[in-house]
Write a protein that binds this DNA or RNA. Sequence first.
DNA 1: TTGAAAGCGCTAACAT
DNA 2: ATGTTAGCGCTTTCAA
Lengths: 352, 352
Amino acid sequence: MPISRRAVTIKDVAATAGVGVATVSRVLSGTGSVSAATRDRVLATARELDYRPSALGRSLKLQRTGSIGLLIPDITDPFCAELTAGVLDCARTLGEYVIIDAAHDDPVREAEIIDRFVEQRVDGIIAIPGSGDIATWEAVARIGVAAVFAGRTVEGLIGVPSVVADERAGVRSVVEYLVGLGHRRIGFLGGRLSVTTGRDREEAFRGTLTDLGVPVDEALIVRARPTADSAYAAAASLFQRRSDVTAVLAAGHLLGEAAVLAARELTLRVPADVSIAMVDDVPWAELCEPPLTVVARPARDLGYRAAELLLRDPARRERGRPVVLPTELVVRGSCGPPAGMPGSSARSSRTR
Amino acid sequence: MPISRRAVTIKDVAATAGVGVATVSRVLSGTGSVSAATRDRVLATARELDYRPSALGRSLKLQRTGSIGLLIPDITDPFCAELTAGVLDCARTLGEYVIIDAAHDDPVREAEIIDRFVEQRVDGIIAIPGSGDIATWEAVARIGVAAVFAGRTVEGLIGVPSVVADERAGVRSVVEYLVGLGHRRIGFLGGRLSVTTGRDREEAFRGTLTDLGVPVDEALIVRARPTADSAYAAAASLFQRRSDVTAVLAAGHLLGEAAVLAARELTLRVPADVSIAMVDDVPWAELCEPPLTVVARPARDLGYRAAELLLRDPARRERGRPVVLPTELVVRGSCGPPAGMPGSSARSSRTR
DNA sequence: TTGAAAGCGCTAACAT
DNA sequence: ATGTTAGCGCTTTCAA
C-alpha cells in the first residue's frame, strides 16, 4: 500500500467519478438534487479513495468553523474538568468541536488564548474567567465574537452573558445550617475578592450571619491566594489564632482541603472539636473521614448550559442576563453541634 | 461604535495602507524584506482596523493547521485531566492549539472523534485509547496522520508509538513492598484485560508473586468494569468472601476508592485489619484516613512527552517504539504488617 | 440533473 | 522593496 503523498480532495473524487466537483459536493452534503445513479457512483469512489472532506476549505467558504473555544483556569481542577465535560457533552450533541486552553490565572495568557481563538475563527467562546483584564473581553465583544462566561463572571462587563451557580444562596444555606446547629463563632476561609465567586461568597457569609443575628467577627474571616500553600497557611493560622472557632466554612475545595489537613495536623477532631464545611463538591469530600458536608455547584450543567446558550440561543444571549443555577447543600458527617452544646459529644482537652 | 458586519481581511489592510496584500503578509509574518516606512504604516493600519489574520486562510494555504487532536476517555478522570494538562503545556510551548474530545469508552464514538480530527486536518493525534477498534487506528495510519498513544497502548498495532508508564515495574514495587511487610494473601482488584494497562498490571501482579515465591491464589484476583458500582461490588465481595486477605492492591483509583469505601462499610480498620494500596495517585489519596499508599504514574509528563514526540520528533516517532516513563511508589499510611505479625498492632475481633 | 466558475483569506513564487 | 497572481479545498450561484 503506497503512502499517500497528498490528501485526496474533492477534485480527485470528481475526476475519478467522472463528474464535476459541484456534484460531489452536492452528494456529500445532501443538498440539491442528484440522480440516484451518479449519487451511488460518487459515494462509491469517495469510499474507494478514502476521501475525507477538508473542514478547512468548507469553513473558509462558509465563514463558520463549527468550533467553540473553551478557556479555563486549570483543567486539573475538578470543577473545571466537570464543567468542561458539560461543554463537551453539549458540543457533541450540537456537532461542534472544542478547542481548549488553560490560562492558569494569568491575564496575559488569557488574552493570548483569546486572540488565538479569534484567529481560529471559533463560532464562540466559553470562559471561566480569571481575575483578568476587563479590556480583553471588551475587545472580544467589539470584534463581534460571541462569548459566555461559565461559573464566574467579570465585574462591570455588560454584553457578555453568563451561566453561574447561585453562590449566595449556596453559602446562605450552609451558614444557616451551621448556625442552626448552634455555631456562633464560624471561621471563613475565603478566596480573592477579585473573582466574582470569591466576593459573592464572602458577602453572602457576612450577610447571612447578620440576617441571623450572629455578630460578624472580622478576625474570623481570612483570605488566601489560590495555592495549596497559601490555603494551608490561612487555615492553620486561623485554627491557631482562634481556638474558639467551632466551625469553619471553606469557600472552595482548595481551602477545604487545607482546613482538613490543618485540623488533622493540630489533632482537632471533626466534627467534635470543629465542624468543617466547604463550597464545591469534589470526589475526595466523600472519601474524607468524616465525609465532608459541602455546597455543590452543578458544574457539569454550568458547562452544558453555557454551550447551549452560546450556540442555540442567540436571542437570549444578546440580552446578556445571567442564567443562575441552584446549588445543593450536601450534608455528610463533618458538621455537628459545637462542643459543649446539648447533643454534642464530650469535648476532649485540646492539646496544642 | 458600529457593529462590524464583516471581518477585516488582509485586503482591507492592504487597501487602507495603500500597499499590496503580499506586503501586508510579509510585514505580519516577518518574512521577506520591507522598508521600515511601509512596515510601520502597515502595522499602524492593522492595529487601527483591529485586523485579526484568519487561521483558516493560512492553514488552507500552508496545508498545516498547527493543531493537535486529543482523544481521552473522560476529562473528569484525574489521570486524564493531568495528562491533558501536560499536553496543553507542551502544545503551548510549541505554539499549537488543542482540540479535545472524550470517547467515554465507546469505540463508535472514538472512531467518530478521530474522523472529526482528520477532517479538521489536525497535525497529529494524541490518544488515551479505550478498548476500541484496532481498525480505527490502522485507518489513521493509512491516511498518514501522525498519532501517538499516551498512558495506554493498543494491542497488536504497529506503527503507532506510545508514551506509557512502566506499569509492570510499578506493580512490582508495590507487591514487593506488601510482601516485604509480611503479606501472603493479597487481593487484587483489577480492571478489564482488554486495555493494556489492565493486562499489564494483572500480569505483573501474578509474576511478582511468583518471583517472590508467594503462591498465586486465583480466588483473590477479581475484575471490575470501570464504573463505581462495579468496582464497589468487586471490592465488597472480595472482602466478604475472603476474610483472610490481609492486603489489597487496587489497580486503579476507581478500584481504590471502592476498596476504601467497602472496608469502611465493613468496619475493617486500615491498615490494622487490612492494608490497601492502589495504582494511580489522585488528590484524595492524601486526604484519606489513613492516607493511601500508591503507585504514582507521571501523568503530566506522559502527556507532555507524547506531545513532544508527536510534534518535534518525527524520526523517533516513525520507529514506533514505546517511550516508558518510571512510576513511583509513594508510601503513606495505608499499609502495615498483616494482623498477628510481629510489629502489627493487636487485631480486633472482626465483626461481620 | 449537472458543470463551470467565482471566491472565502491567506502565502509564496514570480515579476518588476 | 513591492505588487500581481495562482491556488490551497470547498460551496454555491448561474447556465446549460
